[in-house]
Simulated assay, not measured.
Amino acid sequence: MTPIEQSAATRVAIVTGGSGGIGSAVAHALAANGMSVVVHYSGRADRAEKVVASIQEAGGAAVAVSGDVADETAMTALFDAAEERFGGIDVVVNTAGIMLLAPLAEMALDAFDQMHRVNVRGTFVVSQLAARRLRPGGALVNFSTSVTRLQQPTYAAYAASKGAVEAMTLILARELRGQDITVNAVAPGPTATPLFLEGKSPELVERIAAVSPLERLGTPEDIASAVAFLAGPGGRWVNGQVLFANGGVA
């Protein structure tokens, strides 16, 4: 029996940033598909534990583990914890990231470095461990953004960090030839998370929603469905791609 033919209940997923709006939706979606889930967080333990409790109440298996995604020692411990608790790793979803906005001419270099550390180095560290430790039949899903296509003012530094994520994702997919591991990225458009909605007037949110031909914002569940597809049996023939989950905004 090949790994993909095994019961979905035997599959194990790590979700970095699993306590956030999109990350928690991804954790729930993968758990609903029968996977055991390691919910990673870096700050709010209470949010991560709430996600774990919700999954467990629905009959799933989950555990919360903290760590800095850009720290290779902390992330090695995260992968160790997943293997020790559940026996192996089949799916890694890298939702952890930060977004700091300013015109390029005004962006503080400290802010640029902070975003680069989390979004680029963090993705690199987690991807490197995934490449070494995912079981055959596994999937790595990184996170980009539809802003890489939209050329919106104030997003230069953020889009640059996500452009780097796309580059490493597409190259890693080719480097893992022969290992039966898929590597893809999901690029969300405007998504109704608390972080996105914070500080925006209802009128501004309405204008942003109207940009999509579907005339609404995405939901965390919309993005989680795309991730679940790439992480599941239906996505096994999708490899080395960036999936724009944005309702048609770009």
Score class of each variant (00 low, 15 high):
6 Q>G: 10
12 V>R: 01
18 G>K: 06
21 G>S: 01
24 S>H: 04
30 L>R: 01
32 A>F: 08
33 N>C: 09
35 M>L: 15
36 S>K: 12
40 H>Q: 14
40 H>K: 11
41 Y>K: 08
48 A>Y: 02
51 V>P: 04
51 V>Q: 03
54 S>H: 12
55 I>Y: 12
58 A>Y: 09
58 A>R: 15
60 G>M: 09
75 M>R: 06
76 T>K: 14
78 L>E: 11
79 F>N: 11
80 D>A: 05
86 F>V: 09
86 F>H: 08
87 G>A: 10
89 I>N: 05
92 V>Q: 00
95 T>M: 00
97 G>R: 01
99 M>Q: 05
99 M>K: 03
100 L>I: 06
100 L>E: 08
106 E>N: 07
106 E>R: 12
112 F>G: 01
114 Q>E: 10
116 H>I: 03
118 V>D: 02
119 N>S: 09
120 V>N: 04
126 V>G: 08
126 V>L: 05
131 A>L: 06
133 R>L: 05
137 G>P: 09
144 S>K: 03
150 L>A: 03
151 Q>R: 07
153 P>D: 13
158 Y>R: 07
160 A>R: 03
163 G>L: 14
164 A>V: 11
165 V>W: 02
166 E>R: 12
167 A>L: 10
170 L>Y: 13
174 R>Q: 15
175 E>Q: 15
179 Q>S: 07
181 I>M: 04
185 A>G: 05
185 A>T: 08
190 P>V: 07
192 A>I: 05
193 T>M: 05
214 L>T: 09
219 T>Q: 09
225 S>N: 09
228 A>E: 01
231 A>F: 00
234 G>F: 14
234 G>H: 13
242 V>L: 07
243 L>N: 11
247 G>N: 07
250 A>I: 12
